[in-house]
Simulated assay, not measured.
Amino acid sequence: MNISQIKQITHDNRKLYPQVYAVKPGSVHIQQIPNLQYVSQEMNTSFHMDWTGHPQPLDEQWVVWKIVNQVKRISKGSLDYKFKLMPPEIIWQDSNENNRYSVSHMMQVPDCITVEIFEEAKACVQRNLRNKIPQIKFISANSALCAQKLHVGHYRDTHLTLQEINNFAKEQGYKVKGNRREIYLTPAMADIYPPESWKTIVRVEIEKLN
């Protein structure tokens, strides 16, 4: 393969990390998740629960994907590195009686992305929006032992899969030590992807009981 062909490759982290993003339908399984880095936005918001795709915030602006789009543009120009956008992920932390949720809304980015590229991308989005953007972080998540399962169906029913995961972890002698993470693999286009085909990875971090 010559240099020009290498430059034309569009990298896809779904293929690089199949244990993370290529989960198959079936039973709950335990998996060591590698170190990964993300662009992340902390939110305290309500969601449109009748939305036809992955959850969408109602009262806060989600700008992570705008920043990752700029990261993609910058890395193509400065690193000759092209990559596909990863699916949106939410870590669900808390909720209250007003159906507001404390969440981390994030997208995974390649290992070659630096803090400098992230800051340049964030500044670009800031200029384009012409107003103050929410607090966005560039974070690195350490490798962690997790229990996960692919949920097939409407995302509103992922709590059933979460309960199955929790039961499995307990039966195998583990305890859940973190909030649930959901990775929305199916694009939010219900006219193309009916709800019964939607795919969401549900994952929790676990540790072995003494």
Results as ranks from 00 to 15, higher is better:
A188E: 10
Y184A: 05
V103R: 00
F118K: 06
H154D: 14
Y101A: 05
G153T: 13
V109E: 09
E89T: 06
N96T: 08
Y155D: 00
P187Q: 02
E171I: 11
R100T: 11
I165V: 09
G153I: 11
K177D: 06
E171S: 12
V103M: 04
S104H: 08
P87N: 02
N99C: 07
I201M: 12
I113K: 01
A123G: 11
V115W: 05
K149C: 10
K149D: 12
D157F: 04
N128A: 10
V103L: 04
K177T: 15
T158E: 15
V115C: 11
F138A: 09
Q108R: 12
R156H: 07
P88R: 06
N128H: 04
N167M: 14
G153W: 03
E119D: 11
K149F: 04
T158H: 04
N98F: 08
D191H: 13
T200C: 03
T158R: 01
N179P: 02
V103W: 03
Y81M: 12
N98W: 09
C124H: 07
N179R: 01
I136D: 05
F83H: 02
I90V: 13
K82W: 13
E89R: 00
Q172G: 04
A123M: 06
Y193D: 06
V125T: 08
S102M: 07
A141F: 08
W92I: 01
V202R: 00
A121Y: 01
S95F: 09
E171P: 07
